[in-house]
Simulated scan of single mutants.
Amino acid sequence: MLINIHKSALEEVLHFRNQFLHENNFQFICNKCHDYGWADTYLFWANDMQIGYGAVWGTDRREDRDTIFEFFISPPFRKHTHLIFPKFATITKAIYIESQSNDVLLTSMLYEYATNIRAEAILFADHYQTNFDIPGTVFRPRQYDDNSDDSSDFFLEAEGRIVASGGLMLNYNFPYADIYMDVKAPFRQKGYGSVIVQEIKKVAYAAGRVPAARCNISNQISKATLLKAGLKICGFRLKGDLKALQ
């Protein structure tokens, strides 16, 4: 079997990207790399048949293309993965792999072909509904006359003061929406973070979106807040240094 790999336009691999997203069924946090032109895509061929695709982007500088972050092979051809991945890595001259641990195929490549593997972020999926209620708090959308340097879409007020803010980032694969939030320094560790996450989750569902979130691997406060607000850990963002391939 002759394996060929060609750099291709995004439109040429979209049918495989749709399969990739459908099969994995999770928020793919690098989805926006394609929308913003930060990635190059490659089409995989076995003889004269298209069998999958891969993508690279710049892990530290957007103009670089040094990191494999997507790798998909149609299931009937996955027995040939050991032939395809090393050739893909060699052609792209990538030096890193970035993978979500819930992406089983690329994560298996990470553990086989990379060293110095480390977790950089925790990934969260929604798990259950909470019903926190702190007396005196009001959750509301941003208003045109708000005199605030905070550009968030939603605020949580307590006794007329903004204690927390947040919103949804929609530049991820549909239907997922990424929750972001911040509790103002004087009001932390009082439960406001979990309340605003709880309410933002409701906004997401009302808009036909599925809420998700992530935080830095070392951010224990955000991790605790998201778990308390009914999310669960669904994976980790992993990175490794590609071994020299022959």
Results as ranks from 00 to 15, higher is better:
1 M>D: 09
4 N>I: 12
4 N>Y: 08
8 S>F: 01
11 E>R: 06
11 E>P: 02
11 E>V: 05
12 E>W: 00
15 H>L: 08
15 H>D: 15
19 Q>N: 11
19 Q>R: 10
20 F>H: 12
21 L>G: 01
21 L>Y: 15
23 E>T: 12
24 N>Q: 13
24 N>D: 10
26 F>Q: 10
26 F>W: 12
28 F>I: 08
34 H>V: 02
38 W>N: 10
41 T>R: 00
42 Y>F: 14
43 L>N: 05
44 F>P: 03
45 W>E: 10
49 M>A: 06
52 G>V: 06
53 Y>A: 02
57 W>C: 06
59 T>D: 11
60 D>A: 09
65 R>A: 05
69 F>V: 01
71 F>V: 03
71 F>R: 01
72 F>Y: 15
73 I>V: 15
74 S>T: 09
76 P>M: 04
79 K>W: 12
79 K>H: 13
79 K>L: 13
81 T>S: 14
82 H>M: 08
84 I>F: 12
84 I>P: 01
84 I>N: 00
84 I>W: 04
85 F>D: 03
87 K>W: 10
90 T>V: 13
90 T>G: 08
91 I>V: 13
92 T>W: 05
93 K>L: 03
95 I>P: 00
96 Y>G: 00
96 Y>R: 09
96 Y>T: 04
97 I>T: 05
98 E>P: 01
98 E>V: 07
100 Q>A: 07
102 N>E: 11
104 V>K: 12
105 L>I: 11
105 L>G: 01
105 L>Q: 13
108 S>C: 02
111 Y>N: 12
112 E>H: 13
112 E>Q: 15
115 T>I: 09
117 I>Q: 06
121 A>V: 04
123 L>M: 10
124 F>V: 01
125 A>R: 14
126 D>H: 15
126 D>L: 03
129 Q>M: 09
130 T>D: 05
131 N>F: 12
131 N>G: 13
132 F>W: 08
133 D>L: 02
136 G>P: 09
138 V>I: 11
144 Y>Q: 13
145 D>Y: 15
146 D>H: 14
151 S>K: 11
151 S>W: 13
151 S>I: 08
152 S>K: 07
157 E>M: 07
160 G>Q: 05
165 S>Y: 07
165 S>T: 07
167 G>F: 11
168 L>H: 07
173 N>S: 04
176 Y>I: 05
176 Y>T: 04
177 A>D: 07
180 Y>D: 08
181 M>K: 12
183 V>M: 05
184 K>A: 05
185 A>D: 12
186 P>F: 04
188 R>V: 05
189 Q>I: 02
189 Q>R: 14
190 K>E: 00
192 Y>Q: 02
193 G>N: 02
193 G>Q: 02
194 S>A: 14
195 V>A: 00
197 V>F: 10
198 Q>H: 08
204 A>C: 09
205 Y>C: 06
206 A>E: 15
206 A>W: 05
207 A>W: 14
208 G>C: 07
209 R>T: 04
210 V>E: 12
214 R>T: 09
215 C>D: 08
218 S>G: 04
219 N>W: 14
221 I>P: 01
221 I>W: 07
222 S>I: 02
222 S>Y: 05
222 S>L: 01
223 K>V: 00
225 T>N: 02
226 L>E: 05
228 K>S: 02
232 K>N: 09
233 I>T: 06
234 C>L: 03
235 G>I: 03
237 R>S: 13
237 R>D: 12
237 R>T: 10
239 K>P: 05
242 L>R: 00
245 L>M: 10
245 L>V: 15
